[in-house]
Design a binder for these strands. Structure first.
Lengths: 229, 229
DNA sequence: AAAGTGGATATATCTAGGCAAAAGGGAAGG
DNA sequence: CCTTCCCTTTTGCCTAGATATATCCACTTT
């Protein structure tokens, strides 16, 4: 009669999927489920908590556990190292540094990085290729007052992304995705027409309330970001 | 002396972030950590398991727990119900049905829905507005052989998305995001120039290995999907 | 040298019980 | 009728102990 939390989780999910517990309905309490399945409440708790983590159910003290109304409320995307992503599709990865300058922080970046005007930042532009076709353009800004080591780092062989991953851990990340039209520079680098619709990801990274880096990644035309579950 | 699993998790993460336990290094065993912190082993286990779930550490029986070398982190996006999303920004939500036809499945959709050519599908087009400005265009296809109830559903007041959520218990979902140029129809509906770069989401939904619906959501120009973690 | 075996060990999971905290729901008072 | 306060329910979290399982490593066998 006693079962493990995985089986229990599968059981409950099965019943939800088959409509026995329709969206919005209230599930039995932990004690009751534990008695029904002949296991400890902790086991039920583990199963229910994982279902909640997966976004299947919603739990609130006193209110109980109920099936979520929306079939999918959250999606999870892996943010891989670009090299891995390219190699995963069976292509050869190549990296190229385009430019590297120490400049005054532009106004539009002040707010995002949380630095004051007039400060100096490191600006690195580079390209990532899959089998010699453009894959991604990387436009990165690093706050050198927070990360002075970046000033002496050599980005000609290894990309700033991989360098940063190895050099600094991060605590908070904000990402956003949008669609943008290729300007002249991007069109040239990504080998597409000017005005072509491109998928763009922007990421700000903080460590201990200190902004470290902001990066704008522009993917080749036609790129898709996909998730399934 | 005794602490909760959240504090413990934060403690361990802190030490990893600060380099006390560098990437690749072996962490103490659960028993040892429990003794050091004066708590039960289950508490340590919970903290460590969550760190593993978050992709910070890697755990293997007998081998112990070690800090991951390349933390391939994953982002989690909330995909809100369109009405909630609009109302969250303080705007008034409005819905409009554009068209609704029963047609032969187009070739490009056969593969995605997993239906054979010549079959009949329900095609629904509608718009979602925020304060009377276009917010999202919904282009939906429903397999009526799997979901015959859709044939008699009235989509003039409630959108197909909300109808489906209530009608279909639960499912497997595949989503993908990309950038596309506005064609004449989309430009007209979304009030933008033809060729404008638009953010597009596509979602296929299955239930018990049966494809139910495919939807293509095109957002207004300038839309951003953002997450923070 | 290569392959198989078994013990040691670290994590995975379960049990049984208890206290804490949040919050729904109703009672009491204005 | 409405608001405020309290009680009870339900999940959250912890302890302490035990079994299960995977797997590294050393040792033995072929």
């Amino acid at each position: 009669m006693a079962i493990g939390y995985k089986e229990l989780k599968a059981d409950i999910l099965q019943r939800i999927v088959q409509g026995y517990w329709p969206p919005g309905s209230l599930l039995p309490g932990e004690v009751e489920l534990a008695e029904q399945h002949g296991c400890a409440r902790a086991t039920v708790n583990r199963a229910m908590r994982e279902l909640a983590d997966d976004g299947i159910v919603e739990r609130r003290r006193k209110a109980g556990t109920r099936v979520r109304m929306a079939p999918m409320r959250q999606a999870r995307f892996d943010i891989p190292i670009i090299r891995k992503e390219v190699e995963a599709i069976g292509a050869t990865y190549r990296y190229a540094l385009l430019s590297r300058d120490e400049v005054n922080v532009p106004d539009w970046l002040c707010g995002r990085l949380g630095v004051s005007r007039g400060e100096s930042v490191l600006h690195v532009e580079c390209m990532h290729y899959a089998d010699h076709t453009p894959y991604q353009h990387e436009d990165r800004w690093i706050d050198i007052s927070v990360l002075p080591a970046a000033r002496t780092a050599d980005f000609s062989a290894v990309g700033p992304n991989e360098w940063l991953v190895a050099a600094v851990p991060f605590s908070t990340v904000e990402m956003s995705f949008r669609s943008t039209a290729a300007d002249r520079v991007l069109a040239a680098h990504l080998d597409c027409a000017e005005g072509a619709p491109l998928f763009q990801a922007e990421r700000s990274t903080w460590w201990e309330e200190q902004a470290i880096t902001f990066v704008r990644l522009t993917y080749r035309e036609g790129y898709r970001m996909t998730t399934r579950y």
